[in-house]
Write a protein that binds this DNA or RNA. Structure first.
Ligand SMILES: Nc1ncnc2c1ncn2[C@@H]1O[C@H](COP(=O)(O)OP(=O)(O)OP(=O)(O)O)[C@@H](O)[C@H]1O
Ligand SMILES: [Mg+2]
Length: 963
DNA sequence: CATATGTAGGTTTTT
DNA sequence: CCTACATATG
């Protein structure tokens, strides 16, 4: 109860006349449209306090709505500063939260929803996924990646629901569209309509309702049920909405309905059109026009005194806003007198890519050194994936940070291990999952025994589980018994009990406690258990296996279990979107380069027929500019906009277009010191450079020389040393993919084709296709998968045969195998044995042509040889490797090599790219191989990882390195 | 100037 | 796997 009144009084007295007018205008509709930092949120919260003070309405009678959760939190925090604990009894909600609260309180009005749970994003994705997999679709179900469109479908359905368009309405609308105009687009929309219908049915069946339903149903019911509307209307005497520029039409309607019994409802709407940044999400730019038209007598208040920023920042933002195409009112805001310092907008082009995070962190360090509180500094970026290097750079300097972007607890090593443990315990009959489990130290299985068990399984073609069960080595027997127990528990007990057992009775807990960072890990485990609890509350009858499916779904759709943000007081890292409504002394807008922040390409996979698409491009730029505007205006004292001048590959980057739209007289260029290699980093890498001895190195080395080496091994090693280690050296079982099955069936058919051709027999397309079909028929595929594989394969094959049957070569060898070609290793007494199987060799004058079939989509010549950015050069390396084999073997001279694509290109042609491979190419490859093979023989890759931070093999490597 | 081919890149948010 | 843009080719 301390100084509530006086806080209010102090703040109230500080208000300027226009602000005071807004706070005092308690009755009737009021609209405040004003720029950033003019005190809109301040006025809104003070107005709530004023209502409580001047009327006998209690906190429960006030409803404050905003768009984001963080908006709710910020509003409540500010209110609590003014009125103390009563702030927690004021109804402050997001629109979704409010809809949900009404639905929970008055379920009888919501028969569609009664007894249902909310569907979160992952539920929607899984339902759509199931609908797609179960249906015969073409346009939105590519063979190579049938789930490719799933997330776009969910997005499109969200849009449709926002526009209040049911599946049948959408289907009807589609019938009015001319298919011929764009058949592809049309087909995608047609299949979208089918999936949309299936999705809605699935939602009902599973008793779920999604975000769209919350709003849609509330609107529908408020329109139909006057009784409920009356109840709510009586309950909420005062309605306030902050950041209203981001509301969409349905949310507008909710506000309007709640005030509909009065001509002049007590409706207080606050916002700034220049800060509208959620148009992509359906926000309408005309919210304020709409309300001013709806309530012609509304008091309209504009504010132009800014209490946040320096004049420089305000002028910079103002000049930026003037570049917008659309005509919003652009008032030049006035800063407070004491806030006129110069040099508050700084441009920092960092010369080298990769140096930007460290540069920004060093600037942050300087500020903190001068006494700035880290919590008053923010780094704003365009997308969540920009964050990690900046967080790392701060951490490297020991600067605390609070990360607004979600980080995934499952990615942390200890949780990744728990995942392996759970998967192995539940699916011990799955060789791959069991193999990963065997890599965990808690199994008590020493390294050499683990390698031997894997080798035994690969040689005998027995399941790994059987190999383990029959093993006579004591540690294997002991673990085998424990595993059976873990398995039985995980299959029978309920989810929380299973996980509890696995954590506490498997040795996992002891490992966490003995591990590197027990406190941190235990906190992340806590977040994980919270998710388990949430899940089992919703699916009380689910077992661990179901939960694992759920986790896999999260993984495939790139979603995460968020980590609770660590305490307060650190430098704040968040997306520009997330910064809306907040303020900081120092703001760093990072990665502000063209094509990233501004100049982004928009790609919409579904072009829905309804909204007009004429001005979309322009709108995109303006939307993005407003986002930049929001980011700029978060700053009280100084904003630094940084970008790097070159990208990772040395290409030049241009600054964001918005930088040049700022009046250049207001921008100061930072002088960036030439980067010196930081002392700390060098000493760290010295520490890394002292490798620990690799356990069972001799065994692994022997295994390597025995195994031999192929071009697949080489390509895998170059992609990731650990991939080679697990897949090719240890032969950890891999799930056979649809692609592998398809590819080998195709190869079998082509073998038949060329065999017949070489014998001069008549080629019957039907017969070749039958070979393919027989291979597919035998393979473990679901009925629908089989049908799809057959359809695609038949089409490809018949086209291929038609194009090639005239010129089938006579003098050939099919699947020409070369084994055991010796390759001496420098500095080693042993030789490595090289192997390879050549799809086809064709005898030409004085030598052979080597051909390799590829079932995937065709690649350009540059992509094959590895000259493009994304290319791995695998195909090219394959051809050179074959030349090396043939040269060493000495039987045939390789004239040329070719890559033959078995899928037609978009024009229906089957492309073959032919190359001549020179002796220089071979000697280049030989040098690479010397390096690679020596690295393998000496296991010097042991402390390396590949460039993919999510690499499954590197993750597994971390696990085995612990034991 | 029209068409073909090659290449890079692929959000932001709401319970 | 799709699409927009840049570059090459007729
Ligand atoms: N009359 C005033 N005197 C002193 N400080 C004020 C006054 N009005 C607002 N402020 C302060 O100015 C800052 C910006 O206010 P506020 O966040 O309410 O602005 P806003 O209009 O909501 O901005 P945004 O559009 O970014 O959400 C806050 O720190 C607030 O406390
Ligand atoms: Mg605000």
């Amino acid at each position: 109860m301390r100084s509530e009144k006086s806080t209010f009084e102090t703040l109230y007295r500080a208000l300027n006349p226009r602000q005071r007018e807004a706070v005092d205008a308690i009755e009737g509709p009021v609209i405040v449209i004003a720029g950033p930092g003019t005190g809109k949120t301040q006025v809104l919260t003070l107005r709530i306090a004023n209502i409580l003070k001047r009327t006998d309405v209690g906190p429960e009678g006030i409803l404050a709505l905003t768009f984001t959760n963080s908006g709710v939190a910020a509003m409540r925090a500010r209110l609590a500063e003014i009125i103390g604990s009563a702030a927690y009894r004021v109804n402050i909600y997001t629109f979704h939260g409010f809809a949900n609260a009404v639905i929970q309180r008055f379920p009888e009005y919501f028969p569609r929803i009664i007894g249902s749970h909310t569907a979160d994003r992952i539920d929607s994705l899984r339902l759509v996924e199931r609908a797609v997999l179960a249906r015969r679709l073409k346009a939105i179900k590519p063979f190579g990646n049938p789930l490719y469109y799933v997330s776009s479908v969910v997005k499109a359905i969200e849009t449709l629901k926002r526009e209040n368009m049911s599946p049948s309405a959408f289907a009807a609308l589609l019938r009015t569209v001319d298919r011929a105009a764009n058949p592809k687009k049309y087909e995608r929309n047609r299949e979208l309509a089918l999936v949309y219908r299936a999705y809605e049915e699935a939602l009902k069946r599973e008793r779920l309702y999604d975000y769209g339903d919350m709003i849609m149903e509330l609107v529908r019911v408020l329109v139909a049920e006057r009784e409920l509307l009356l109840t709510l209307e009586e309950e909420y005497q005062y309605i306030l909405a902050d950041e209203h520029q981001d509301a969409n039409q349905a949310q507008n309607t909710i506000l309007e309905l709640l005030g509909s019994f009065h001509d002049e409802p007590n409706l207080f709407i606050v916002g700034d059109e220049k800060q509208a940044i959620y148009q992509f999400q359906g926000a309408s730019l005309h919210n304020f026009l709409y309300f001013t038209a709806r309530f012609p007598n509304a008091k309209i208040i504009e504010l132009s005194e800014n209490y946040r920023s320096t004049q420089n920042i305000l002028d910079a933002a103002h000049s930026l806003a003037l570049s917008a195409k659309e005509r919003l009112s652009h008032v030049r805001l006035k800063a407070q007198k004491q806030r006129r310092q110069k040099e508050s907008v700084i441009l920092a082009p960092v010369p080298r890519s990769g140096d930007e995070p460290d540069y920004v962190a060093s600037e942050v360090e300087k500020l903190i050194g001068k006494g700035t509180n880290p919590g008053d500094i923010a780094m704003l970026y365009r997308e969540n994936s920009d964050m990690p290097p900046f967080a790392a750079a701060l951490a490297a300097r020991g600067i605390p940070s609070v990360i607004g972007s979600e980080t995934d607890v499952l990615k942390t090593p200890a949780l990744a291990e728990l995942l392996i443990l759970m998967r192995g315990a539940v699916h011990m009959d799955d060789d791959r999952k069991l193999a990963e489990l065997l890599c965990l130290p808690l199994t008590g299985i020493p390294a050499h025994l683990r390698y031997m068990l894997l080798a035994r399984a690969a040689e005998t073609h027995m399941s790994l589980y059987l190999v383990l069960a029959r093993a006579t080595e004591p540690p294997a027997c002991a673990f085998s018994r424990r595993l059976s127990h873990l398995n039985a528990v995980s299959l029978t007990r309920m989810l929380p009990a299973s996980i509890d057992f696995l954590v506490n009775e498997s040795g996992y807990r002891e490992e966490v406690i003995a591990g590197d960072d027990p406190t941190g890990t235990i906190q992340k485990l806590g977040d994980f258990f919270a998710e388990v609890k949430r899940y089992s509350a919703r699916h009380p009858d689910h077992k661990l296996a179901d939960f694992l499916d759920y986790l896999s779904a999260l993984e495939t759709h790139g979603l995460s279990i968020p980590e609770r943000a660590e305490g307060r007081g650190g430098v704040r890292l968040m997306t520009a979107h997330g910064s809306k409504g907040l303020e900081f002394d120092y703001v760093f807008i990072v990665r502000a380069f063209h094509g990233h922040f501004g100049g982004r390409r928009v790609r919409e996979r579904f072009d829905l027929p309804m909204r007009g698409s004429a001005l979309r491009e322009e709108i995109g730029v303006d939307d993005e500019r407003r986002l930049f505007y929001v980011a700029l205006t978060r700053s009280r004292r100084r904003v630094t906009v940084s970008y790097s001048v070159s990208d990772d590959n040395g290409g030049t980057l241009l600054p964001s277009q918005f930088i040049s739209e700022i009046d250049s007289r207001l921008v100061k260029l930072a002088s960036i010191p030439e980067k010196k290699v930081p002392q700390a980093l060098t000493s760290v890498s010295y520490q890394i450079a002292a490798p620990r001895p690799v356990p069972d190195a001799e065994y692994l080395k022997a295994l390597f020389f025995e195994r031999g080496f192929s071009v697949t091994h080489l390509n895998n090693y170059l992609a990731c040393p650990w991939k080679y280690f697990f897949v090719n050296l240890l032969r950890i079982p891999e799930a056979k993919s649809k692609h592998l099955i398809y590819g080998s069936a195709m190869h079998a058919a082509l073998k038949e084709l060329y065999d017949r051709g070489s014998r001069g027999e008549r080629v019957s397309a039907a017969r070749i296709i039958r070979i393919f079909e027989e291979n597919i028929a035998r393979a473990p595929l679901s009925p629908l998968e089989r049908e799809e594989a057959l359809g695609k394969g038949k089409r490809s094959l018949s086209g291929y045969i038609a194009q090639h049957r005239a010129g089938l070569p006579k003098d050939i060898r099919i699947e020409y195998a070369i084994h055991g070609v010796p390759f001496p290793l420098e500095g080693e007494s042993h030789v490595v044995r090289l192997n390879g199987i050549l799809d086809r060799i064709t005898f030409v004058s004085d030598g052979v042509l080597v051909s390799d079939y590829k079932t995937g989509a065709h690649k350009s010549r540059n992509e094959i040889v590895g000259k493009t950015k994304r290319a791995d050069g695998n195909y090219w390396r394959q051809l050179v490797f074959y030349k090396l084999l043939l040269d060493e073997q000495g039987t045939f001279k390789m004239r040329e090599g070719e890559i033959a694509f078995v899928e037609p290109d978009e024009k229906g042609r089957y492309r073959t790219e032919r190359f001549s491979v020179t002796p220089e190419d071979v000697s280049l490859l030989t040098r690479t191989m010397q390096e690679v093979l020596r690295a393998i023989a000496s296991l010097s890759f042991w402390d390396q990882t590949c460039s993919d931070p999510d690499c499954e093999y590197c993750r597994l490597a971390k696990v085995i390195k612990k034991s």
